[in-house]
């Protein structure tokens, strides 16, 4: 993949990239029209990358709802390792999954038990609304998010043209994730709203993020949606943060 190419090769790529973009971008967008992520043009959420099948209505709902503390429902970043320091020439992928171990196992779940506990009363206390502040993106130019299920090669994300966001597109059903990366000052520098479980940072993004105060801190907020509304008992839940330091290779 491009992330492993030598510097001269990278230079060649940068020269031909604009030309390739017009051709490959058009073809790729049409090839994966149903799956490709897109960047929001909504002024409400500048810089937020919206994954396939997400929309700003749901994100607004997510950010306006107080998170609930429940470690079993929080999204845990499994990659990269916290505290890692790496050069921008190496690929960087954020991956996550829900819970230290999944609690979504029908065979293990309780059935028909009668308890006096009301589901709402059983919730953990609400935590302080420490939701992300939606500051402008650190890298304002075109960028595409990638997801685990995308058929869109990761290296094309830096080449393909920007598509217009469906600000009020298909409603979200199921769990959605909001990856927020902040700089050392706590300012959001990279944010992705997606239904997937990973996000690949392109090389140019890594280079831009390496320029902000390090270390970066990443966490994932998630909730369960039903037609863009968070269903009762559906969160949101905030996952623990990890630290990553990006360095510019000499």
């Amino acid at each position: 993949m491009i992330d492993h190419l030598t510097p001269p090769t990278r230079l060649v790529r940068r020269l031909v990239a604009p030309a390739l973009a017009s051709v490959l971008g058009f073809a790729a967008v049409h090839l994966v029209a149903a799956c490709v992520d897109h960047e929001s043009t909504s002024p409400e959420f500048p810089g937020v990358i919206f994954g396939a099948q997400t929309n700003d209505d749901a994100l607004r709902t997510l950010l306006e709802t107080l998170p609930v503390e429940d470690p079993t429902q929080a999204a845990y970043l499994t990659s990269p390792m916290t505290g890692i320091a790496q050069p921008t020439t190496l690929p960087l992928t954020f991956k996550w999954r829900v819970g230290p171990s999944s609690s979504w196992n029908g065979r293990e779940r309780r059935e028909g038990r009668f308890t006096a506990r009301d589901s709402l009363a059983g919730r953990a206390p609400l935590v302080a609304p420490a939701g992300p502040t939606l500051l402008p993106h650190a890298a304002p130019h075109a960028r595409r998010a990638s997801t685990a299920d995308s058929r869109f090669p990761a290296w094309l994300h830096d080449l393909a043209p920007v598509s217009v966001a469906h600000a009020h597109g298909s409603p979200i059903n199921g769990r959605a994730y909001f990856l927020v990366v902040t700089d050392a000052n706590g300012e959001p520098v990279y944010q992705v709203f997606t239904l997937g479980f990973e996000n690949v940072l392109g090389e140019s993004t890594r280079e831009e993020l390496a320029l902000v105060p390090q270390p970066l801190r990443a966490s994932v907020l998630n909730a369960v949606f039903d037609n863009d509304a968070i269903i009762p008992g559906g969160g949101p839940w905030r996952g623990p943060a990890i630290d990553v330091t990006l360095t510019i290779a000499p």
């Binding site: 429902q73 779940r109 028909g112 009668f114 006096a116 589901s119 969160g235």
Partner: peptide, 19 residues
């Protein structure tokens, strides 16, 4: 049966996030 709060709830065994 009733609880001290006067309410009772049947536990459907639903996964988290399912109403």
């Amino acid at each position: 049966t009733t609880t001290s709060g006067g309410g009772t709830t049947f536990d459907f065994g639903l996964p988290p996030g399912v109403p």
